[in-house]
Write a protein that binds this DNA or RNA. Structure first.
Length: 232
DNA sequence: AATGTATATACTCGTCTGGC
DNA sequence: GCCAGACGAGTATATACATT
């Protein structure tokens, strides 16, 4: 999944609002780039760190630059939360996620009720339907990828919905996409949101499948590399 | 009827504002 | 001083409306 072109380099100054990040370009000019990450980005923000931005050149946008990645300690971290969905859909269709391989159809962002949508919906005739929820992970400590990076109530809701699907006899899975190359296992961040970790273990015990997809992030883009062990 | 275009909405959370 | 609610930007999808 390569980054779109052209890609510009800069340095991270500060995150002003949820959507806006101040950057310094190589020329020294200060710019504002759009930040397509709704999370807290805890552990991923460091003043002066190198960044990659895509120049959309879209005249309709107030800020034409889209922030794509930041480099900390020689590791690129993908910050675009719209990427993991596409990455997981691609990984499933290519059979990278073994247990989820073999479905005839893959639908993204499918409505499953009046209020909620599922990230990926897998169907294959007689087989059980499979509901897949994708989460973006950018927090890694000592080689361990962790989620969430802030207290999440919507995350809890998603787990509840997946458990409900399993209860109704369907398949359901959580896929955590580690958007950096230095994570070697995955565990919930109990110290940040203890309720989430508890709920994830409950969901797993109830039959919700849990996967962590590792990726290699470079200046060219983000590529899925395989599955990581889950430590619940 | 089929296709093209415009508008609406869900999604996400740090920061600010208003009410108490 | 605290907390609830509104706001903001871009994207993708869905719905509504318009044109051929």
């Amino acid at each position: 999944m390569p980054f779109p072109t052209p890609i510009l380099r800069g340095r991270f100054i500060k995150r002003e609002k949820r959507f806006l990040a101040h950057m310094e370009m190589e020329s020294g000019a200060r710019v504002i780039a759009h930040c397509a990450n709704t999370g807290s980005m805890r552990g991923s923000l460091r003043e002066g760190a190198p960044t990659l931005m895509w120049d959309s050149k879209n005249p309709k946008r107030k800020y034409t630059l889209s922030w794509k990645a930041i480099q900390l300690d020689n590791t690129w971290i993908g910050i675009d939360t719209s990427l993991p969905n596409a990455l997981v859909a691609e990984a499933i269709s290519m059979g990278f996620i073994g247990p989820l391989a073999g479905y005839a159809t893959i639908q993204r962002e499918r409505k499953i009720s009046d209020e909620s949508r599922i990230d990926i919906y897998l169907t294959d005739g007689e087989a059980k339907d499979c509901y897949v929820e994708v989460k973006n992970v950018t927090l890694v400590e000592d080689g361990v990828a962790r989620f969430p990076d802030a207290v999440t109530t919507s995350g809890l809701k998603h787990l509840g919905e997946l458990m409900k699907k399993v209860g109704e006899g369907e398949r359901a899975a959580m896929v955590y996409v580690i958007q950096r190359g230095d994570g070697y296992s995955f565990k919930p961040a109990d110290d940040i949101d203890p309720l989430y970790g508890k709920k994830l273990r409950e969901a797993h015990s109830a039959g919700v499948e849990v996967y962590a997809l590792s990726t290699e992030v470079s200046e060219k883009g983000v590529e899925a590399t395989g599955l990581l062990p889950i430590k619940l």
